[in-house]
Amino acid sequence: MRSDPGFYDYWPYHERPRVTWPNGAKIAFWVAPNIEFYELNPPANPHRKAWPQPSPAVPGYSIRDYGNRVGHMRQMALLDKYGIRGSISLSTALCEHHPEIVELCDERNWEFFSHGIYNTRYTYGMSTEQERDMIRDSMETIYRHTGQKCAGYLAPALSHSEETLDLFAEVGTELFGNEGGFYTCDLFHDDQPTPINLRSGKRFVSVPYSLEMNDTIAYVVNKVEPRRYGQILKENFDRLYEEGAESGTVMCIPTHNYQVSCPHRMRAFEEALEYITGHSDVWITTGREIAEYYLAHFYDSARADIQAKSSSAKQEMARP
């Protein structure tokens, strides 16, 4: 085990090379619906329990099924209304279980990225080969069902190994060269995209995905009231929009159809989307497009700046 994962160097938020988004937008805004499949009876992972009760765990399983049976169509209608294409964090077995959902999103030119096979299969305890196979299976499944070359990863149930990002990038290269496997949503260290250090040296970025704006974290972990969640979204946007005038920022709303699409929570979510998309300098986009734009325009200057600042920091520390 390591005390620091080593994916990035310390890089102060101020005085970075300026980021500007297409058409002078101050902020890149994306919505990432997690479209997940939880198994009723998954094999027991010794490191993390899938359900609190012995199978059948009706409460947890059935509310997640609500997301697919009822919630999905609601959120999709709302995103259509505000001109937002979703970037789907996909339990890729859903391509087999619920292909109708995948087709509806595909028709809308939404992005699909990998969120593993099932959200009840954890990375904990997997060998390198097992994790590589699982990741490859997930990316191939997306390609087979949508023709998309999967660009991004969010580990299933946010369960990681030390090698997760390396393996994802490597499998992406193996399958799709530089067109696949080039961004991660697993890190929460910044409000702008940042270059990520991998053993392969691949050009790879972290795209801000936000745990704080995640509806499940807000509703289940932090237990916030629905209207307060709406308020949090607006305030998060306000500050990032303001700061984006100096250098472009990223805001993401990660959602789950079994949380945000419940009847008593739709209003707060809709008000926030209406507010955000009602501003002029917002680039409404997807995770992949943010990563591609950053790689094409800012990645090299960011690398150079990080290196310059890291070496001057080292000189500083070496001074007696």
Binding site: P43, N45, E96, I117, Y124, G125, M126, Q130, D133
Partner: peptide, 16 residues
Amino acid sequence: QKTLGPEHLQYPERRY
């Protein structure tokens, strides 16, 4: 970490 058995990468219910 204890390595997982092969059943963790098998998906008998993965179907429509």
